[in-house]
């Protein structure tokens, strides 16, 4: 069968976003598990993830064609059809997210946003607390901490499905889809920097400015 290799599918900002996010998610998971003094890094990593997520959402509207939500968010019928193609090993080459891949992107963004968002309001019942934890009641902090606690496994599950799907492409469909996330165009449009700066600024506001006592 012909191997669908979506060459040059992804612009550099999208690729950089993907790998930065991947590294930070693994780092966050690990430091969260170790706990103790590593929670300082866990929190910083969470802020960076938050900024990356904001950037990706903005890039989903302002980025090049393949990065846009309108290009890859498809209905359940298309997703189901694609699932059948996958199982039958009949996948046609096409650059960009597949209908199922599009859902994966959305799922990843949602579960990570929930994880990073709840993290802002948590504590470890010891010496670490999120930057906004003092602005809400202890009951809310407990609730957020519990959600943060179980949603890490939802994140792990979504990451797992993603990795298994990629492995399926490589091993069963003999399609090197990872290459498209590595190589590709190298130019970075100025608006990518602007959006990243805006995202970082927004996170800085939430994490540093907002919690400051009046």
């Amino acid at each position: 069968m012909s191997a669908p290799v979506p060459a040059a599918a992804w612009d550099l900002p999208t690729r950089a976003f993907h790998w930065a996010l991947a590294v930070l998610v693994v780092f966050s998971f690990t430091t969260g598990k170790i706990g103790g003094p590593w929670l300082e890094w866990h929190m910083k990593s969470g802020y960076a993830i938050l900024a990356l997520l904001l950037f990706r959402v903005a890039w989903g509207f302002a980025g090049p064609a393949n990065a846009r939500f309108t290009a890859f968010v498809r209905g359940p019928v298309a997703a189901l059809g694609h699932a059948r193609e996958l199982i039958a090993r009949r996948v046609t080459a096409k650059a960009g997210h597949t209908p199922l891949g599009g859902w994966m992107v959305l799922a990843m963004l949602v579960v990570l946003a929930l994880q990073a968002g709840t993290g802002l309001f948590t504590n470890d019942e010891s010496s670490h607390e999120g930057p906004l934890s003092r602005m809400v009641s202890n009951a809310t902090v407990d609730r957020m901490s519990v959600i943060h606690g179980w949603n890490q496994w939802v994140v792990a599950a979504v990451v797992g499905v993603h990795v298994v799907a990629i492995a399926y492409y490589h091993v069963v469909l003999k399609a090197n889809v990872t290459r498209g996330m590595v190589t590709g165009p190298t130019q970075v449009p100025a608006r990518a920097w602007a959006l990243l700066a805006a995202a970082a600024g927004a996170v800085y506001y939430v994490v540093v400015v907002l919690p400051r006592p009046a």
Binding site: G36, P37, E125, S126, D142, R143, M144, S145, I147, G149
Partner: peptide
């Protein structure tokens, strides 16, 4: 010393304190 105390607290909490429920 603060880290050592933190570890001592956590060691006991991990085994003998019920996880909180939101």
């Amino acid at each position: 010393a603060v880290q050592d105390v933190d570890a001592a607290c956590a060691a006991c909490h991990d085994d003998y304190r019920v996880k909180r429920r939101g």
